[in-house]
Structures are given as structure tokens and as C-alpha cells.
């Protein structure tokens, strides 16, 4: 593997770890279920995308790389479905979204 490819792959892996970390921090810090959903749906999925892209760069064959990248849309579909279900459930349960004025 050429060194530049190794660096690119490592950079993507670290970027992925960063987004996962940001997602977790958002989950811990954000005030209500809707905002926490934003943190997980966006940051974690981008983190997964970075990790998969980083690993795909190391793949030995084109097919193996594409297979890794195939995981991403599936995971996105899953998170879109589950994320929507959570938001709708929260809405049906009558959970009011947190707002700035309410906290003051």
C-alpha cells in the first residue's frame, strides 16, 4: 500500500472517530429527545461514512471496497427509519420540544 493511501485512510478513520465522539457528546448534552436525535442521526452516520471510506481505501480489490461502501446506504436507511419512528413516537407521546425561552 502506498504511504499516501495509508495516510488518507488513517485521516478518515480519525475523522470518523471524531464524529462518533461528537455524536456521543451531543447525546449527553442536548436537552431533549429531538435534539439528541439530531446529534445521533447526523454525527454518527457521518462518522460511519468516514470509517467505511477509510477502510475501503485499504481494500485489496475494487469489489471489496465497494462492499464496504455498500454498508453505508443500508445503515443510513436504517437510521432514517428508526429516527423517524422515534421522532413520531415522541410526538405521539406528547413530548414537547425543548425551547430556548422555556429554560430561562
Amino acid at each position: 500500500m502506498p504511504p499516501w493511501l495509508e495516510y488518507a485512510s488513517g485521516t478518515l478513520l480519525v475523522a470518523g472517530a471524531f464524529f462518533y465522539f461528537a455524536g456521543t457528546v451531543g447525546l449527553l448534552r442536548f436537552p431533549d429527545v429531538y435534539t439528541r436525535l439530531h446529534a445521533l442521526a447526523k454525527a454518527d452516520n457521518l462518522g460511519l461514512g468516514c470509517v467505511l471510506a477509510g477502510l475501503a481505501l485499504q481494500a485489496e480489490t475494487l469489489a471489496a471496497a465497494l462492499k464496504l461502501l455498500l454498508v453505508w446506504p443500508l445503515a443510513l436507511a436504517a437510521s432514517a427509519g428508526v429516527g423517524y419512528a422515534i421522532a413520531r413516537r415522541a410526538d405521539a407521546l406528547g413530548i414537547a420540544p425543548w425551547t430556548r425561552d422555556k429554560s430561562k
Partner: peptide, 21 residues
């Protein structure tokens, strides 16, 4: 809330898959 606990399902979808890969 119950909706918060459902977030766990989301976590396995993204983090679990990432760890496996």
C-alpha cells in the same frame, strides 16, 4: 422518556456496524 430509550436502536445501527467493519 420511552423515546429516549429508543435511541439505543439507532446506536447499534451506526456504531455497531462501524465497530464490526
Amino acid at each position: 422518556t420511552a423515546a429516549d430509550r429508543m435511541l439505543a436502536a439507532l446506536l447499534f445501527g451506526s456504531t455497531g456496524v462501524g465497530v464490526l467493519a
